[in-house]
Design a protein around this nucleic acid. Structure first.
Length: 221
DNA sequence: GCGACAG
DNA sequence: ATCTTGTCGC
């Protein structure tokens, strides 16, 4: 890794080119899952290392089936719009360590609700060739109305005249989630699946489980 | 030039 | 994300 923020311009521009390539491969279409496995992924950071974790849950029961972790050196700075280059390598390795290949993945970040329509979830979907959904805790881009106050209420997220996601209330009177299609899914399917993975917490179970795992492993590494 | 800005 | 304790509210 290079020195200053300005010293990263080289890797940033190269990353940007790759994003355009990957964005061209993103497929948005309806997706439904009757029964199978959904994986949640997340990453934590500790002393120069990325700790990624994947949590596999049975669907639609949401029973925890399996989990995995992957630790790697951080080789990319955090720059809004380029989160994938910081987390995707470790997350991909964690997914590969699962004995069961998931039918779909939910990531804690944006899907196509991204300047170049290739947020972390979409990026992972294309690399792994799996349906993915982005369920972020805050907004990267786009505008929307304030969704209603109750669980299930939502408002569309717009950008450049397109609907790129939904601002979804997953719990009464709680800050909403920014849901957007990652790959091989569309917005309606993404919202439906996220809601079916939500219990009594703001985060859907797959992501919530992965988050706890990475936080726990961070202490042991 | 001035903000905004996933984790 | 990370650095960090108690505290207000459902």
């Amino acid at each position: 890794m290079e020195k200053s923020k300005t010293g990263y311009s080289g890797m940033i521009s190269r990353a940007k080119e790759l994003q355009y390539t990957l964005a061209a491969r993103v497929v948005i279409r309806p997706f439904s899952l009757r029964r199978g496995y959904v994986a949640g992924v997340d990453a934590a950071f500790k002393s120069g290392k990325v700790i990624a974790s994947a949590c596999l849950l049975a669907y639609p029961g949401l029973e925890r089936v399996e989990e995995s972790v992957a630790v790697m050196d951080i080789d990319f700075p955090y720059v809004p719009g380029y989160l994938s280059f910081r987390e995707a390598p470790a997350i991909t390795e964690a997914i590969g360590k699962l004995k069961t290949r998931p039918d779909m993945i939910i990531a804690d970040g944006q899907g196509i609700a991204h300047p170049r329509r290739i947020g972390l979830a979409s990026h992972l979907g294309v690399l792994l060739n799996l349906p993915t959904i982005g369920a972020a805790k805050s907004r990267l881009i786009g505008t929307s109305e304030e969704p209603g106050p109750f669980k299930g209420d939502m408002a569309y997220l717009y950008h450049d005249g397109d609907v790129i996601g939904a601002v979804l209330r997953t719990r009464d009177n709680t800050k909403p989630l920014y849901v957007s299609p990652g790959h091989l899914t569309d917005l309606e399917s993404a919202v439906a699946i996220v809601m079916s993975c939500v219990t009594r917490y703001r985060l859907p179970e797959p992501t919530r489980c992965a988050h706890n795992q990475s936080a726990l492993n961070k202490l042991l590494v």
